[in-house]
Design a protein around this nucleic acid. Sequence first.
DNA 1: ATGTGCATGTAAATTGTTACATGATTCA
DNA 2: TGAATCATGTAACAATTTACATGCACAT
Lengths: 194, 194
Amino acid sequence: MRSLSPASRPSGLAELGAPAYVVLGMVHLGARSGYEIKQAVENSIRFFWTISQAQIYPGLQLLEAAGLITGRADPQGRRPRRVFETTRAGEAALRDWLTRDEPMPFELRDTGMLKVFFADALDREQALTLVRAIRKRSADRVRTLRAIEPAARAAEADGNLYPGLTLRLGIAYHQAIIDVCTVFERQSAPSRDG
Amino acid sequence: MRSLSPASRPSGLAELGAPAYVVLGMVHLGARSGYEIKQAVENSIRFFWTISQAQIYPGLQLLEAAGLITGRADPQGRRPRRVFETTRAGEAALRDWLTRDEPMPFELRDTGMLKVFFADALDREQALTLVRAIRKRSADRVRTLRAIEPAARAAEADGNLYPGLTLRLGIAYHQAIIDVCTVFERQSAPSRDG
DNA sequence: ATGTGCATGTAAATTGTTACATGATTCA
DNA sequence: TGAATCATGTAACAATTTACATGCACAT
């Protein structure tokens, strides 16, 4: 049932799932076409939420049918394009979702952590190699996120404070991982004992 | 194709996916039956990796067919039960997986962060409510993880150091989120300006 | 002319969860 | 005697990704 709804609820109206609200939120922030929404996701929330084209275009149709966005054709030359904007109902629906008192699932699937968990099956040097690998992975991520900081500051100048907060959260998260790994490596590494 | 493999590779032998290695790893750590594996997952890795019964039992069959574990019937009274242990090939396969130089995907899907990202659509007080909610969620998680610390220390006494490292990583992660939220709330909260 | 980016859309495959089906054992 | 726990297994379902299909615009 190719819906963008979560596990169908008993309720009458088909309720929207998170992917549809992502599309709605991005249109609210100024992404006009499906293509622009995809770009916006890649440039911002991809670190804690991903969404594929195959969710975006049906999502736009769903939101339009629900009256939360309106679309019109806006071809560039002979290249077809549809642009969207939120309706008043759409703005209200977005705020309703944001303030809804519902569980906010936090799902992590981390192959690195998984391997570290089982690392006692390795000898010490190999296990430490794993720890270094996940430290490096987080260090790379911190660099990637820091590179986005100027864009976040630009958004703040536009009155959008919260994307910057999610960025700081991501940086802090990975910095914490780096710190824990560094301490562990120092405690574990000496190898040549006195 | 109900396989526990990742995107089928061109290679001859069906390669095992992460869920199968989780099962193998848990058997290696002493979980003997499907039921015990499920318990072990709930008591340890569930914070960064989940797996359902419907993956465990087929996984055991797959690993047994591949010669990485051996199972035998071990009924408790009239209640049937199968217990497993790793073979030498299984231990080797586990170490091979752990040392393999391959990408270790880090996938996060966090509805809380998502809502925070779009929180500029709300008025300040409502947005802060959201920030407080994710801070509280991480505080709860830290408490849950701290409650596991004694078990991790017991595992360390048994020579299993790495489960404790993943626990410290989880705590540090959520503590970092708490800290960033706290700072943000302080900066943003005053409301009654001087 | 050719590769990259803009642009939309869907079919098929994959991956994973939920719910069901079944039944024994233990404890209150 | 009834609930909780132990124990195994699978069918049906839901959610998401990958790959395909198509074609214009623009720069080199």
